[in-house]
């Protein structure tokens, strides 16, 4: 997809979201340009997951606007399936399909959703699995793989749809410390290849290394944002400072 480079690919404006009486997002705005990598950090329960789940329509919003390549997500008429072809997502719990092998997990959506030819989809899937370093696990079932391997399959699965932007929601949070790096490395390679990425993460070192822009959320608001250097070295808001002092 050729998206005009001068306009933000994802543009979130003044988004409000509540679950019942619980207000989770209280007016969030942010823009993501094509090829940009942004990281969202913040304390638990501050609404990070909720925010990125709104981008691919897994959550509805009460008010505000989310434009993905100019298309309004907050529109009851919206064809969510079309939106989701453009926006990939990787979850904290991997959420692979347990009854399908790694290869089937990766090629299923292209065949079913994009109606690709099976052989072409399979070739592409093998290539992707090689890219994430799992060519030897092609026929393994999720139950036979480590968390890190499963998460890399999940990344390949998302890439197979050839999305324009990928959402990552704390994708290393459920992993053993030893396997965190293999997944982070995979994401870093993606970022270097120019994939637009929106990451929620607690890996500060990683955020600092790969992010073009960092957003800090607290209590349903973005309290501070900036490039990594400015963010980590010159945080202004006391909430950011406190959070960083706890984590670093």
């Amino acid at each position: 997809m050729n998206w005009d480079e001068t306009k933000p690919m994802v543009s979130i404006k003044d988004v409000y979201k509540s679950f019942g009486t619980l207000e989770v997002l209280k007016g969030v705005s942010l823009d993501v340009m094509k090829g940009e990598v942004i990281c969202i950090i913040g304390p638990s329960g501050s609404g990070k997951s909720t925010l990125i789940r709104c981008i691919n329509g897994l959550n509805d919003i009460q008010s505000g606007s989310i434009l993905v390549e100019g298309q309004e997500v907050n529109d009851p008429e919206l064809n969510k399936l079309e939106l989701r072809k453009k926006v990939g997502m990787v979850f904290q719990q991997y959420n692979l399909f347990p009854h399908k092998t790694a290869l089937e997990n990766v090629m299923m959506a292209p065949i079913r959703v994009l109606k690709h030819d099976k052989e072409i989809a399979q070739k592409a899937a093998i290539k992707l699995l090689r890219k994430v370093g799992l060519e030897d696990k092609v026929n393994a079932y999720p139950g036979e793989m480590s968390g890190g391997q499963q998460q890399r399959v999940a990344i390949a699965r998302s890439l197979a749809m050839n999305p324009d932007v990928i959402l990552f929601d704390e994708v290393t949070a459920a992993l053993d410390p030893e396997t965190v790096n293999e997944v982070l490395l995979t994401i870093k390679k993606l970022a270097e290849d120019g994939m637009t990425c929106i990451l929620v993460t607690h890996e500060m070192g990683f955020a600092r290394e790969v992010a073009d822009h960092i957003y800090f959320t607290d209590g349903g608001l973005i309290v501070e944002h900036g490039n990594p250097k400015k963010f980590f070295e010159n945080a202004k808001d006391p909430r950011t400072k406190e959070f960083l002092s706890q984590i670093l």
Binding site: S44, G45, Q92, Q93, Y94, L96, P98, P142, G143, M145, S146, G147, Q150, E170, A173, A174
Partner: peptide, 14 residues
């Protein structure tokens, strides 16, 4: 309240 992610390497059924 902190919510703890359910930690497992296996795909789960409820």
């Amino acid at each position: 309240m902190k919510h703890h992610p359910y930690k497992t390497d296996l795909p789960v059924m409820l």
